[in-house]
Design a protein around this nucleic acid. Structure first.
Length: 519
RNA sequence: GGCGGGAUAGCUCAGUUUGGUAGAGCAAACGGCUCAUAAUCGUUGUGUCCCGGGUUCAAAUCCCGGUUCCGCUACCA
């Protein structure tokens, strides 16, 4: 595969039977931070998110609310989903909805292609069916022959469905995950996938005839395409899957496919690591480079859920801590890939310690000192070998970690540097030097080295906390002196001495005010 | 039932591959400093390393057995 300078990342498309909670936001923020990091590396980035709008559950939710499925989706997308991403400062390049024509037509074309190539066949699906649930049940859904949900006996029903020859791709999938372990991470997730593949994998029923909220099977319009088959394709339809050579869509697809990373929650790992690549293989397309399954956010030790009143809306948290603290906290506190416990206490502790005391306060003390001791302008460029080295190391570790989706490690390295700068200031005691007029040169050096370190911190933390770092960037005069923060490159951060002498520094409002006891 | 992962300081966790006096951050206590957001810097303490056996000069680490939590998978039907 030719080395390309593009980076294509997707979040799952979220199922619109309800409003987003912090679990959805966790995935999307992670995607946003990672894509912002790649943009800061100068890569051509495409970041896709969207909504999954077909299927029986959406149809039922709409019915219960007395509206058509389309109206239901339109309302949730416009009033709940898109606004939340806007509030969280998510810089997605596209937002796909599976009810859009661009998606539906490409899905149909893709499916027709698979059928023409012989990967689709008609067969009778027979199994236990619960009238109450109006769906076929799996053995695990049953208890003593009765539906667990309704506690009533199931009937054996059969339905003619179209099947995808999933089983035919098992050997190729096993080979893929064995030879390219990085294509499914973390390791625990890959092992689960492999263990599943080594079991008995059955062909997949990809159509339904019991309801009609979905994309019609092109050659059998009595049936609609199974919602997962439809949904997975969004990653490719959004960038022009199957379009005429030479068209805009085809160019985009050429540029960005295969996706570099599909971020998924661990509950939907198998769809992405088994079904999706098999679909692509069947179509003769390259498979995604990496499926990354992150963990769940736990509240009180349990997976968040609406029914247990643990479904927290992002706004509940951002109203108190602010958007940037939200973005920071989950990626900083939880190793990506393992479950993590959310608690107001822990978030409050980390906010105070790391954002207010370490980072925010460092910005306050240096801007205040430059105003007080240097007339509000950056003094002559100076150099401190210790800080410069620490910065170089921090950038190196942070970059390596972020690229590996180790957000905790990456942010940790940056914050370690921040602490080091605080230590430098305390040790040099600029306030003491300032009392001796013969030591002005020395004083200016300390001030310069500190503000220059803050310049680097602003760029390093920009992908994680864009709004706050932008404010900081302005307040140290960097915007005027060296250009927009968004144009700064990771590779250039550790070049010492960028903030020029004379830049205007103003001590603005504190970046992360101390908060009253959380909740 | 099978496979896999976890149980370590008040809290979150690292350390277990390659045995050698038990670690980090946060919280706590004490000291320094006063540029800063009652901030920051330094120092300090903290442990039946889930339980019971075994191997060894020496076990959080290796072996056997058990408890408990979690994930994947299967089956009972």
């Amino acid at each position: 595969m030719a080395a390309k300078n593009s980076f294509y990342l997707t979040t799952p498309i979220y199922y619109v039977n309800d409003a987003p909670h912090i679990g959805h936001a966790y995935t999307t923020v992670a995607g946003d931070v990672l894509t912002r990091w790649h943009r800061a590396k100068g890569e051509q980035v495409w970041f896709l998110t969207g909504t999954d709008e077909h299927g029986e559950k959406v149809m039922n939710a709409a019915e219960k609310n007395g509206v058509t499925p389309q109206a239901w989706c339109d309302r949730l997308v416009e009033e709940a989903w898109k606004p939340v991403w806007k509030d969280l400062n998510i810089a997605n390049d596209d937002f796909i909805r599976t009810t859009e024509v661009r998606h539906e037509s490409r899905v149909q074309r893709f499916l027709q292609g698979l059928k023409d190539a012989g990967h689709i066949y008609l067969a009778k699906y027979e199994g236990p069916y619960c009238i109450g649930c109006e769906e076929f049940k799996l053995p695990g859904d049953l208890e003593e022959g009765k539906c667990k949900v309704h506690g009533r006996p199931v009937e054996t029903l059969s339905e003619e469905n179209w099947f995808f020859k999933l089983s035919a791709f098992v050997p190729a999938l096993i080979e893929r995950y064995t030879k390219h372990p990085e294509s499914c991470e973390p390791t625990s997730a890959r092992n689960e996938v492999l263990s599943f593949l080594h079991g008995e994998v059955k062909d997949l029923s990809i159509s339904r005839s019991t309801f009609n909220w979905g994309i019609p099977v092109p050659w059998d319009t009595e049936q609609v395409i199974y919602v997962w088959f439809d949904a997975l394709l969004n990653y490719a339809t959004a960038i022009g899957l199957g379009d005429e050579p030479g068209s805009e869509g085809a160019k985009k697809f050429e540029e960005f496919w295969p996706a570099n990373v599909h971020l998924v929650g661990k509950d939907i790992l198998r769809f992405h690591a088994v079904i999706w690549p098999a679909m692509l293989m069947a179509a003769g397309l390259p498979v995604p480079e990496k499926i990354f399954a992150h963990g769940w956010l736990l509240v009180g030790g349990e997976k968040m859920s609406k029914s247990k009143l643990t479904g927290i809306a992002p706004k509940d948290i951002t109203d108190h801590f602010g958007v940037d603290a939200f973005r920071y906290y989950f990626l900083r506190a939880i190793p990506f890939g393992t479950d993590g416990s959310f608690s107001w206490e822990d978030m409050g502790a980390r906010y105070t310690s790391e954002l207010a005391n370490d980072f925010g306060n460092l910005a306050s003390r240096i801007t205040a000192m430059i105003e007080k001791y240097s007339g509000g302008t950056v003094p002559a460029v100076a150099h401190d070998a210790g800080l410069a080295k620490a910065l170089t190391d921090a950038v190196e570790v942070a970059d390596k970690s972020m690229l590996a989706l180790d957000f905790q490690g990456g942010i940790g390295a940056i914050m370690e540097f921040c602490k080091k700068v605080n230590g430098y200031v305390t040790e040099k005691e600029p306030w003491a030097i300032a009392k001796d007029e013969s030591r002005t040169v020395e004083l200016n050096e300390v001030l310069y080295n500190t503000i220059e370190s803050v310049r680097a911190l602003a760029v390093l933390l920009h992908p994680v906390m864009p709004a706050t770092c932008e404010i900081l960037w302005q307040s140290i005069g960097a915007d005027t002196a060296i250009g927009a923060i968004a144009d700064q490159r990771i590779s250039g951060i550790s070049t010492w001495g960028q903030l020029p002498e004379g830049s205007a520094v103003t001590k603005g409002a504190v970046l992360f005010p101390r908060l009253e006891e959380a909740k």
